[in-house]
């Protein structure tokens, strides 16, 4: 403990191994988990606002899987390994994948006009994307398989401070932008028609919501792979804690909760069966899926879904 402190706060380099572990492995990993966890939860909150449904989430609706598929395509055909692509490029590729899968889900969803059908479509899209990703991985070079497989299950283990800086560069502006739009978001929660009658430009606002969701979730996929259920579970937990829906409270709270949630999940993933590391999605699924089931059960009772 004392050693950690001295390395952390006094820049003690007497033990280079400890210094490296802390500054090059542990800290960037924690910082990245916090940042991406916050971003993922916030994107979940945004997509839930968009659909006015507490079960929507970037993973459930196939957004993460779409991003993952595109990234895998890029990795297999362009470079050979996911990690070696320039970060801006990976983010852009996964953003395209994320937006395309949102549009696909929306395009079909418009026709069915039914929330549970929309979720089923999202889950199907997610399965299709995952299957295609698996096929691609099958055909990738042997050397890349390990890293791709590892990444496609979600992990913070390869974090560097460069990743942290880059993702912060995208996530914080997105967070601030989201916060600036908390007022129309509050009106939108009471219905599109109502928001419109209050003078909200609903069409532009919906586009903004989708874009922000896409940006936030694709950054996560680019740096840590798809992480399941955080986007659904964390906004739900935040709502329970705050006992309000108001975006002006929910946006910062969801971000902080998500950061904490992912740091903890990553800690479990790393230490639970040490030295074997679990993938982050394994942990988030175990913790997050029951919350989704609970929400489904609640929704059924109230006939909302």
């Amino acid at each position: 403990m004392q050693k950690i402190f001295s390395v952390l706060f006094y820049g003690d380099t007497s033990d280079p191994a400890a210094y490296n572990i802390l500054w090059k492995i542990r800290l960037p990993r924690i910082a990245l988990a916090a940042l991406l966890g916050g971003a993922l939860s916030l994107s979940g909150f945004l997509i839930q606002t968009f659909f006015r449904n507490p079960i929507a989430g970037p993973f459930v609706l196939g957004i993460s899987s779409g991003a993952k598929l595109f990234l895998t395509v890029a990795a297999v055909f362009l470079y050979g390994a996911a990690g070696s692509l320039p970060p801006l490029f990976t983010v852009l590729v996964s953003l395209i994948g994320a937006l395309l899968s949102i549009l696909l889900v929306l395009g079909i969803g418009v026709r069915v006009k039914n929330m549970s059908a929309l979720l089923v479509i999202g889950i199907m899209v997610s399965y299709i994307c995952s299957a295609l990703t698996d096929i691609l991985i099958q055909f990738a070079n042997d050397a890349d398989i390990a890293s791709l497989t590892h990444w496609s299950h979600g992990s913070f283990s390869a974090a560097t401070f460069a990743d942290v800086r880059f993702s912060a560069f995208i996530i914080f502006p997105a967070l601030i932008l989201t916060f600036l739009f908390s007022k129309p978001m509050g009106a939108y929660l009471y219905g599109e028609g109502y928001a419109h009658s209050l003078g909200v430009n609903v069409r532009a606002f919906r586009v903004l919501l989708v874009l922000l969701t896409g940006v936030l979730s694709s950054v996560v996929v680019a740096f840590a792979g798809p992480i399941s259920f955080v986007g659904v579970a964390v906004p739900h937990i935040s709502r329970r804690l705050l006992k309000t829906q108001k975006p002006i409270w929910m946006i910062p709270a969801t971000f902080l909760c998500g950061a904490l949630f992912c740091v903890l999940c990553d800690l479990f993933a790393r230490t639970l069966f040490a030295p074997t590391e679990l993938s982050i999605s394994t942990v988030t699924s175990v913790l997050g899926a029951p919350i989704v089931i609970r929400l489904m059960a609640l929704g059924r009772r109230k006939n909302e879904i």
Partner: peptide, 25 residues
Amino acid sequence: AAVFTDSIRPEMTTCFEFVAAGRYP
């Protein structure tokens, strides 16, 4: 002001908060 009946019943929102949304403009 427009009053169109819709089925949206936001959770964890008090009537006061709901009505206060009318101050939006």
